[in-house]
Computed example of a mutant assay.
Amino acid sequence: MLTNFSRNKTRRIEIVAGIAYGDDIDRGLTVLRRLVEQEPRILAEPEPSFAVKALADSAVNLQLRAWAANDQYWDVYWSLMQKLKPALEAEGLTVPFPQRELHIVDRVTSRR
């Protein structure tokens, strides 16, 4: 199946932002709201939405959904993505990334 997004006048932007489990969720959602308020190309209707999408392995994933004119979709998306990390960090929030901790046990004993 092929979906032609270009035939619609508007298109929904979906952005997921992960914050650390120790961070304040409301503060993270406020950052997303501010980004939308500062982006004049985001449409007022349908109203943007902000939510906790998932409690993932390495992060609490917050989701922003907003609408833009189809011909401005990528410019708005890229602008929001570029501003997202610095905006989160300016509020003292952490953008986590997956990590693994390995414990290596040496079970080889020396024989004489």
Results as ranks from 00 to 15, higher is better:
23 D>H: 05
88 L>E: 00
83 K>R: 15
109 T>Y: 06
69 A>Q: 14
51 A>H: 05
84 L>C: 05
44 A>R: 15
66 A>L: 01
103 H>V: 12
70 N>G: 07
101 E>M: 13
103 H>D: 10
1 M>T: 05
94 T>P: 03
27 R>I: 08
31 V>H: 01
55 L>S: 04
86 P>Y: 04
10 T>N: 06
69 A>S: 11
34 R>H: 08
19 I>V: 05
100 R>A: 11
16 V>G: 02
33 R>A: 12
88 L>W: 01
2 L>G: 11
99 Q>V: 15
96 P>N: 00
24 D>Y: 01
5 F>N: 11
74 W>Y: 12
72 Q>T: 13
22 G>D: 12
60 V>N: 00
99 Q>H: 11
49 S>G: 08
49 S>T: 13
68 A>N: 06
40 P>N: 11
105 V>W: 06
97 F>S: 12
26 D>N: 12
44 A>Q: 13
96 P>W: 01
52 V>K: 03
111 R>Q: 11
23 D>A: 11
30 T>M: 03
78 W>P: 03
60 V>E: 01
111 R>D: 09
94 T>C: 03
24 D>A: 05
90 A>L: 09
26 D>A: 13
78 W>A: 10
74 W>A: 09
76 V>W: 05
10 T>M: 10
8 N>A: 15
97 F>D: 14
103 H>W: 08
81 M>S: 08
105 V>A: 07
29 L>S: 02
75 D>R: 14
95 V>Y: 03
1 M>W: 06
104 I>M: 07
37 E>S: 06
99 Q>W: 09
89 E>Q: 07
93 L>R: 00
49 S>C: 05
98 P>S: 02
27 R>G: 06
49 S>K: 08
99 Q>F: 09
22 G>R: 13
76 V>F: 07
24 D>C: 04
6 S>Y: 14
91 E>Q: 05
17 A>L: 04
54 A>L: 03
48 P>S: 01
21 Y>R: 02
75 D>H: 11
29 L>R: 00
64 L>R: 02
82 Q>N: 12
46 P>K: 14
27 R>T: 13
55 L>I: 02
6 S>I: 13
24 D>W: 02
107 R>N: 00
33 R>S: 06
35 L>P: 01
11 R>F: 06
35 L>D: 05
4 N>L: 15
27 R>E: 09
15 I>E: 04
102 L>F: 13
56 A>N: 04
80 L>Q: 04
67 W>G: 01
75 D>I: 14
72 Q>C: 09
81 M>R: 12
42 I>G: 00
92 G>Y: 06
10 T>D: 07
102 L>N: 02
101 E>C: 12
1 M>V: 01
57 D>S: 08
17 A>R: 02
107 R>H: 04
66 A>R: 01
105 V>G: 06
47 E>L: 09
85 K>L: 11
21 Y>W: 08
9 K>V: 12
63 Q>H: 05
83 K>D: 11
10 T>R: 06
21 Y>M: 01
73 Y>E: 03
84 L>I: 03
65 R>K: 14
110 S>I: 14
37 E>H: 04
64 L>C: 05
90 A>F: 08
81 M>T: 09
100 R>F: 14
3 T>G: 05
43 L>E: 09
112 R>M: 08
3 T>E: 13
34 R>K: 10
92 G>S: 08
86 P>A: 05
44 A>H: 11
6 S>V: 12
39 E>M: 10
7 R>K: 15
72 Q>A: 10
42 I>E: 00
22 G>Q: 15
78 W>C: 09
